[in-house]
Amino acid sequence: MQIEAREYEYANDYKVLIESYSGKPEHLLAIMQDVQKHYNYLPRLAISMISQHVGIPVSRVYAMASFYKAFSLVPKGKFIFRVCDGTACHIKNSATLLDQLQEHLGIEVDETTADGLFSIETVNCLGACALAPVMVVNGKVYGKVSPGDVERIINEYGGQSYASQHKC
């Protein structure tokens, strides 16, 4: 596993986060969640440091990171558009919302725009089924979104340039 030199700049920050928990394996998930929350992904160096702290091999920490949906192995955008594809949303055409987002932003699900501004994710259910279809941007919930609203929502987050690219 290769770790780039510049990542070590953050070593102390990671250390503070990681060592706020004991090294018991039962805290592995919580430590990973804290790092994920802080950096929007699990940096390589952090994975390696977590592995040492809890005494679990890197391969298993990496496996955890790839197994659970809460974790990302690559950096995410500043704004994360999460489209709910729970059943209630699905039968209310969440697929079209997703298509719209992908087309406007020019990226696929789980990708991030080159400027690091936007990412698209799908989520199984946000538990806001009564408002289907639902989309969440950095914690803000948008309910009953119609395909026509997508452009407006992107613009709210400074994505005007993306929206205009789309218009042909």
């Binding site: 018991k24 394996p25 039962e26 805290h27 592995l28 998930l29 990973m32 969640q33 809890v54 679990i56 955890m64 197994f67 659970y68 949906k69 809460a70 974790f71 199984n124």
Partner: peptide, 18 residues
């Protein structure tokens, strides 16, 4: 951690155990 299968008892236990 975000996994539907963790609703299953033994998977949930595995998840708590790290």
């Amino acid at each position: 951690g975000g996994a539907f299968v963790c609703g299953e008892e033994t998977a949930l236990i595995a998840s708590i155990e790290g």
